[in-house]
Design a binder for these strands. Sequence first.
DNA 1: CTCATCGCTAACAAAATGTAAGTATATTTC
DNA 2: GAAATATACTTACATTTTGTTAGCGATGAG
Lengths: 119, 119
Amino acid sequence: MEHQPLLCPRFEAAFCILGKRWNGLLIHALVSGPKRFKDISTLIPTMSDKMLSERMKDLETAGIIVRNVYPETPVRIEYELTEKGQALKPVMEAVEQWAAQWLDDQEFTQSGCSSKDQS
Amino acid sequence: MEHQPLLCPRFEAAFCILGKRWNGLLIHALVSGPKRFKDISTLIPTMSDKMLSERMKDLETAGIIVRNVYPETPVRIEYELTEKGQALKPVMEAVEQWAAQWLDDQEFTQSGCSSKDQS
DNA sequence: CTCATCGCTAACAAAATGTAAGTATATTTC
DNA sequence: GAAATATACTTACATTTTGTTAGCGATGAG
């Protein structure tokens, strides 16, 4: 009862990251340059601080972002995409294009998302 | 204290779909052509039947796939990408490329994923 | 009849996520 | 110098989502 070659282990691995809530948004937020914790939480107000710090740790472990600590008065911490993270830019762009062509502004928080109401 | 335009509502909507567990894999599985319930569950053995049927319903509601019922002896049901679904092919390809370049086969089920086994 | 396959659904357990509050450090306001 | 504010988190606990196991109803094989 071994299981077959599946689709492709690397593709699966990729969607272990991208297929997790918030990760896509976070990566996208950092494409435009490094940001601080607060900046990101302001950009994505629906995400809780807890989730933000957890996802950041995950993405750091995955080698997609780096956490830079600047020991200034008060300490400043910036998150920034690594080379591996920057390499996701084409993915983000493809998603953007698809979203622009096929999705409505209305459509967000509708079907597959955080939908509680389902007749 | 209104909250800003965020990143982009459509992009968010896109990741409501893509950022959900299994959805990326499912869409990818259907890029190569329509498949039956069983085919998909064999392709992705780590996904339970329950999740498969739930995600399929979600993707159908989102207009990404269609469920075709062929009333043969025994009924055959095939899932197939719509035009909207097919339009995600470039996204899938971008992910594939990234995965090929930056991910190891070993790396799957590692950090952010369902990491129970860490040999 | 008994068993297996297909495409699900139901019941319940486990894990992920959300919410609200708190923490440590440091600066600003009174 | 006490209180308030800011940052980057963490903790405790509620809620939601996912996983696991079992089963159903139809069909067909042995």
